[in-house]
Each structure stands twice: as structure tokens, then as C-alpha cells.
Amino acid sequence: MILKRLELINFKIHSLLELDFTTGINYIVGDNGIGKTSILDSVYYLGLTRNPYNISDNKFVQFDKDFFWIKGFFLSDDNSPENIEVFYHINNGKRVNRNEKTYKNFSSHLGLIPILFICPADIYELVHIQENRRKFIDQILSQQNKNYLNALQQYQKFLLQRNHLLKQQSDYGKNFTNMLDAINSNLIPLNAKIYKYRAKLVDEINNLICNIFYSISDIDIPVSISYESNVNIENVNNLYNESIDNDLRLMHTTVGIHRDKFYFIFNGDDISLIASQGQQKLFIIALKLSMYQWLSSHYNEHAILLLDDIFDKLDEKRTDRLLEQLFQFNLSQIFITDTDKNRVVDNVNKVIKL
């Protein structure tokens, strides 16, 4: 998938902006505070219908305005045009159009334009917050596999029902046990299905991440992802039988794939405990590049890669190694923002100066 043209109205700092892009590397350079990251944010909206930071859409409306509008003109790998619009009004909410037809459900759009974003906030968000690691895994799998997305949505729906039932158990009297059993019977196969997808992804990423980490860091230390779940795939039917006492006492569901944990392992220990900030950044870059490579190889469209301020706090040697690694990928399109106008390299396909 290639983004050929981007048009913005009232999006963050940009009152009106129109940009044309090319295949390969699009290098966006300029001083801080002039809207480089906003361009990447808008591309992310076009791919995932939301912003990368899980904050309110109204934060992206230009000051003193009441709406923003984003339009992207894409070309798929088979040269089919795809025109995507995201319109948000502070009073009327958000609307997403594909080729002038409005989506009823935003989730129907996921996977059409696969996108992976690497930004400075990833270091803290992924290294230190377990829930964000799980959300990141879900985001990658949801873009690649509609079956996974549907299973996850169904799981979340039944989980809400189960938690509500546990909180209001006294209101249901004799019907409580039958209602709980009915919800459990829906949740059990969803737990097994989601677990298998996650475990398979982790196994495949672990086959990629070590080589990429070494290539960009020149640090010969083993790195990996460790997946921990209380879902025992061999005995999944007893999942809720074993937890029922705790669930009733705490009035919420204490087991299941929503409690899964992912650990980032650096030289045999959790990365948040032993790695320096520089090593953490290199690990997250390697992780996301591994996910990019996996996403592109498991999907019929090449993903678009967004790199925001990726070279900040990297020394010249590792900057060169990272660029070399990017050139080795079979990239369809990549966007890089940078403040250093002198770092533009010969291999860049287009330079955009703001």
C-alpha cells in the first residue's frame, strides 16, 4: 500500500496542508514544533481510524476550530486506488469514508491499510506498562487477521457481561448459575483461539528480533518476547471452574486472555530492570521493525512504516546501522521525521522540508 497524496484541514497545527509522496523513503525535515509529527499522526488515522496515543480526537482539532478533516489517496499493491477520509467534529463525532462510502463500524476498516508507527513515547509506554504491550500485540494481529479481531471483540463483549453478572449476582437469584455457565461457554473457546494466535505471533517474532536488534545495535545480547498466560490450552474447559471463588469474592473475572502478560527479555531478564535507556530504545525499534517485517510477510499488502524522531539520542554509528537495516527491508513506503537537515542520505526517495 502506498500513500500518494495527503490533504489536511484544521488538523493540529495545519490549517491547510497538501502533500504528495512517493514510494520508498519520504524524509520530512524541519525544526521542532512545525507539524512533522502531525503528518504521521494523520497517516495513522487513515490506517487505524484513531490516533496513536489513545487520547481524545478533539485534541487534534486546531485551536479555535470545531472540526478536522484528513484525506488520503492510496494505491494498493495491485494498483487499485483507495481514497480514505477521516472527518471529526467536536459535537458530531467521527466519520470514516472509504471511496466516498461511510463505514458503519470502524473495525471494518482495520487491515485495509496496514500501518506500524514508531515514536519516542513507545520507550516508556511499552517498556514499563504491561497493558500497552498487550494492546500492541492486539493491534498487530487485528490488522493482519479479521478472525482475530472478531474473536477479540466477542471476548470483550462477553467479558463485560460476565463482570456485570458477578457484580450484580444477588439480583439474579436462581438464574445466576445458569447465566454464568452460558457466558462461560462462549468465553472458553474464545480464550483458546486468541491464545493460539498470540502464542504463534510471539514464536515467529522471536525468530526475527535477535538478528534485527544486533544489526541496528551491534550488541551481541539475546533478546526475545516471553508470553505468560493463565489460559492452559490443555485444560481450558476448567478455566472458570478453578477461578470461581475468587471471581465471586472480587466480583470480576480474574482469569482469561485479558490478563495475559508479555515480557521483553534482555540478556535473560526483563528489559525494564537491567537495560539502559539507549538499549531500551534499540530494543523497541527492533521489536517494531520485526513486527513490520512480520506484518508485511503475512498480509497481501505491504505495510506503511512511520518513524517519528527515530534518530533522537542515537549516536552516528547506530543511526547509520538503522538506516542500513531499513534499506535492506522490502519497503513499499516509509515516512521519517527529523530535525537534522544534514542527515538526509542519498537513498532517500523524497525530501519534504517544512
Rank of each mutant, 00 (worst) to 15 (best):
Y195D: 03
I216N: 07
I216D: 09
D218K: 15
D270H: 04
D260C: 02
N178Y: 08
E234K: 08
I244E: 00
A286W: 15
I284E: 03
F262G: 01
D270A: 08
Q280V: 09
H298S: 00
S217I: 15
H252C: 07
M251G: 00
F213L: 06
I219M: 12
H252R: 14
K281M: 08
L282F: 12
L208R: 15
Q277H: 07
A199W: 11
N241W: 00
E242Y: 02
H258V: 04
S297Q: 15
I225N: 02
I257E: 00
L289P: 09
A286D: 14
S229Q: 12
I285M: 04
P189W: 07
L201T: 04
I183H: 02
S297R: 15
I221T: 08
D269C: 03
I271L: 10
R259Q: 11
L180V: 05
M291S: 07
D269T: 09
Y214I: 15
Y299N: 09
N241H: 07
T254N: 11
S215Q: 13
I271F: 08
Q277G: 07
S290A: 13
L201M: 14
K288T: 05
L295N: 07
G268R: 01
N300R: 03
Q280S: 04
K193A: 03
S243I: 04
K196T: 14
I257K: 00
Q279G: 05
S215E: 13
S217L: 12
K281P: 02
K288D: 03
V223M: 06
F264Y: 15
K200H: 00
L295Y: 15
N267K: 12
I221H: 00
S297V: 12
R259F: 13
I212W: 13
H258L: 06
I274C: 03
E228D: 10
T177P: 00
N207H: 15
F213T: 06
N175V: 00
D245W: 02
I225K: 03
I216L: 11
I285E: 04
N238W: 03
I219C: 01
I274L: 04
I194E: 07
L248N: 06
D220P: 01
S297Y: 14
N186H: 10
K281L: 09
V231T: 11
L201E: 06
D218W: 11
Y263H: 14
I209S: 09
I205Y: 08
N178M: 03
Y263L: 11
E228K: 15
A199N: 14
N300H: 14
L180F: 10
S229E: 11
A286Y: 15
V231M: 04
N235Q: 13
I209Y: 13
K193D: 02
N238H: 13
L201K: 10
V223S: 01
M291G: 02
D245L: 12
T177L: 04
H298A: 02
V202G: 06
E228A: 05
N186R: 04
S243Y: 02
